Computed example of a mutant assay.
Amino acid sequence: MNIYIIRHGEAKKDSVFNFEGYPDADLTEVGLKQAQLTGKHISTVPFDAIYSSDLKRAMQTSDIISSYQQGLKVEIDKQIREINMGVFHTSSEEQIRKDYPEFYNEFLKKDTDFRYPEGESGEEVLRRTLNFLESVKHKKFNNICVVCHGGVIRSVISHFIGLPQHKRFNLYPFNCGISLLRYDGDNFKVISINEISHLGIYAAF
């Protein structure tokens, strides 16, 4: 089974929050173009299933990709939503530095897998993402598409290339970058990471 993992397109910065506190922004015009270029780029891959996070920026991206697959229905799964950054979603950096000084120091150093106050750690994101992969790996699929988020991609790719979770910050998944995993019946293997050649001038650095 080939698993194409795609980060959503560029999203608006003036995020709104859904009922669980996650930023839930729409795609920008650039993000919509990135999704279209990605859908066209992988249109020759005959996907058996397309999975998406339940956050809007991922669903909008996956809907565009699915339009290049004869309208293949997108399946929504909360297990692949973005890391919950807790107080980072509701407080300024200055306030966090004041209220959570020990955490803020960890956040700056990034040499441990810290847990965001009122949020998640990289390990927690990894566990739910691995649960998702476990749920799909035994299905009789040849190719699946998974549209999710930078935090999810960082955690799972780090895991499969043998890096501890605090090293995930050394990875930078681009908007609509494509990473490819292959499940051979026994193990997941990383085939490629963060392909962006299809984005051209829309590869936002």
Rank of each mutant, 00 (worst) to 15 (best):
Y4V: 10
E10D: 14
F19W: 00
F19P: 00
E20N: 09
E20G: 00
A25G: 14
A25C: 09
A25S: 15
A25P: 11
T28G: 11
E29G: 12
G31L: 09
L32W: 03
K33E: 15
A35K: 13
G39L: 10
K40T: 09
K40E: 15
H41G: 00
S43T: 06
T44Q: 13
P46I: 00
D48F: 11
A49F: 10
S53L: 11
L55V: 13
S62H: 09
S67K: 14
Q69N: 15
I76P: 13
Q79I: 00
I80Y: 08
E82I: 01
N84L: 07
G86M: 08
F88Y: 15
T90Q: 04
T90M: 02
S91I: 00
S92R: 09
Q95D: 12
E102M: 02
Y104H: 13
N105E: 15
N105K: 14
F114Q: 01
F114Y: 08
G122P: 03
V125P: 01
L126Y: 08
L126E: 13
T129C: 11
N131V: 00
L133W: 08
L133K: 09
S135G: 12
F141W: 15
C145I: 07
I153E: 09
R154V: 05
R154H: 08
R154D: 08
V156I: 15
G162E: 05
H166V: 04
F174T: 04
F174R: 11
C176N: 14
I178M: 00
Y183Q: 06
D184R: 05
G185C: 12
D186K: 15
K189I: 08
I193H: 06
E195N: 07
H198A: 03
L199N: 06
